[in-house]
C-alpha cells in the first residue's frame, strides 16, 4: 500500500470512524503524564508527548486479569470446577505507541508464545491487536533505544508507523494487518515524493538526536557466574528501596502472580503483575528464600535483562532503552551504568 498523508484533524476523524468496529486506545493526557486510554468522548487523543509514563503492555497483559471463574455453591453441578473467564476479544488498535514499546511486546512474545506452551490470553491479545506506532521526533535524554536494537522510527513489531510532520501525519503501512486497518480508514491522500523525503529526513535527524549510547552486545560471551559474582552488585543495589517502580513501568517486565478471589459463593482465579523486587516473590512456604536480600533481587532484575534472557533465547538484551526506569527510579539507579559495569567485567 502507498504511504499516505492525513491532516491531524482528518486522522482524528478517521479514528472516530473505526470506533464502532474496534476498541481504539490512544495516548491521553492525565495530570502531568500521558497514558493509554480507550478513545471516547472524554478520552481525547493527544499525540504531543515524549512517552507515556506507563508502557502500553497492560493492553496485552492487563495489570489484573481474570483467568477463570467458578462457583463454590455445592448445589451447582459444576461446583469447584474452573471455567475460562469470558473476555472481550474484539479487535483493538493501539494508536501512538512508541517504537521501543512495540519492540518490547515482540521481546516478551517469545516468553508467552513458545513451542511448548502458548498463553491463550496473551496470544489472543496479540492476534486481536493492530499496532499503529508513532515515531519519536524528539527522543528524550534518557532514551537509548538505538543501543538496544531499536530506534526512534524503528518498524519492528508495528503494523503502521506514523511520522509527525507538524500539521500532517505521514502514514506508512508495515504489515498485512496494517493494510487491512488502513483500508477501513476514511480520508487521507497518497503521499507524494516530497512528503516521503520529509519523513526520511525526520527519521534520520531523530536518530542523530539520541546521544545516550551504551554497548549492549558484549554480554553474550561472558560467563554467567562471573557476572553473577561480580563485585559491583552491592554498589548498584546500595540505594535501592525495592519500591518496584522500575519493573512496574518497564515494557519488558512480564512477571505475574496467580491468586484466587472469592465473593460469596463465586470465585475468580486472576493473574496480577508481580515484581522480582519484592521478597515474597521467591519466598517458600517453608520460610526459605533464595533471594531474601535486596542485592539478590536487584541483581536478578538486571541479570535477567542483560544476561539470562540473552542466553536463553540467543538474542539481544531484554531492554528496549525506553528510559522509564532511569527517569522514574526514586534513587536514580541507571541501567545504562549497569551495562557499563557489566561490559567492563
Amino acid at each position: 500500500m502507498d504511504d499516505k498523508i492525513f491532516s491531524k484533524e482528518e486522522w482524528e476523524k478517521a479514528l472516530e470512524g473505526l470506533k464502532d468496529s474496534h476498541r481504539i486506545f490512544v495516548p491521553v493526557k492525565e495530570g502531568d503524564y500521558h497514558t493509554f486510554a480507550r478513545l471516547s468522548e472524554e478520552n481525547r487523543p493527544d499525540f504531543d508527548f515524549q512517552n507515556t509514563r506507563l508502557s502500553p503492555k497492560s493492553l496485552i497483559l492487563p495489570q489484573s486479569e481474570r483467568m477463570f471463574d467458578y462457583s463454590l455453591d455445592e448445589k451447582s453441578e459444576e461446583a469447584h470446577i474452573l471455567k475460562e473467564a469470558t473476555k472481550e476479544s474484539s479487535p483493538q488498535v493501539i494508536v501512538g505507541l512508541r517504537p521501543c514499546d512495540a519492540l518490547a511486546i515482540q521481546l516478551v512474545n517469545i516468553n508467552f508464545d513458545n513451542p511448548e506452551y502458548r498463553d491463550p490470553w496473551w496470544v489472543r491479545g496479540i492476534e486481536s491487536t493492530t499496532s499503529v506506532g508513532l515515531g519519536c521526533n524528539e527522543p528524550c535524554a534518557t532514551c537509548f533505544c538505538s543501543s538496544t536494537g531499536g530506534g526512534p522510527f524503528n518498524e519492528k513489531g508495528l503494523d503502521v508507523l506514523l511520522y509527525d510532520l507538524g500539521d500532517n501525519f505521514f502514514v506508512r503501512s508495515l504489515s498485512p494487518k496494517g493494510e487491512s486497518l488502513l483500508e477501513k480508514v476514511q480520508g487521507g491522500k497518497s503521499a507524494d515524493g516530497s512528503a516521503k523525503e520529509e519523513a526520511e529526513k525526520l527519521s534520520a535527524s531523530a536518530l542523530e538526536k539520541i546521544t545516550s549510547k551504551v554497548p549492549t552486545d558484549q554480554l553474550r560471551g561472558k560467563n554467567v557466574n562471573a557476572l553473577f559474582d561480580a563485585p559491583f552488585w552491592d554498589e548498584v543495589a546500595f540505594s535501592c528501596i525495592n519500591c518496584g517502580t522500575c519493573t512496574y513501568l518497564c515494557p519488558t517486565c512480564w512477571c505475574f502472580d496467580i491468586q484466587d478471589e472469592v465473593l460469596g459463593k463465586e470465585g475468580d482465579r486472576l493473574r496480577n503483575w508481580d515484581s522480582c523486587m519484592f521478597p515474597l516473590f521467591t519466598y517458600h512456604g517453608s520460610g526459605h528464600n533464595p533471594r531474601e536480600k535486596k542485592v539478590q533481587r536487584v541483581r536478578q532484575r538486571f541479570m535477567h535483562k542483560l544476561k539470562y534472557y540473552v542466553d536463553k533465547y540467543e538474542t539481544g538484551v531484554a531492554c528496549v532503552g525506553c528510559g522509564r526506569c532511569v527517569q522514574h527510579c526514586p534513587v536514580n539507579i541507571d541501567i545504562r551504568e549497569v551495562f557499563e559495569l557489566a561490559n567492563g567485567l
Binding site: N111, N114, V224, F228, D257, R271, D274, C276, Y308, D311
Partner: peptide, 10 residues
C-alpha cells in the same frame, strides 16, 4: 515457564 518466578539463571 511463563510467569517468571522460578528461575535459576536462565
Amino acid at each position: 515457564g511463563i510467569c517468571g518466578r522460578c528461575n535459576i539463571g536462565d
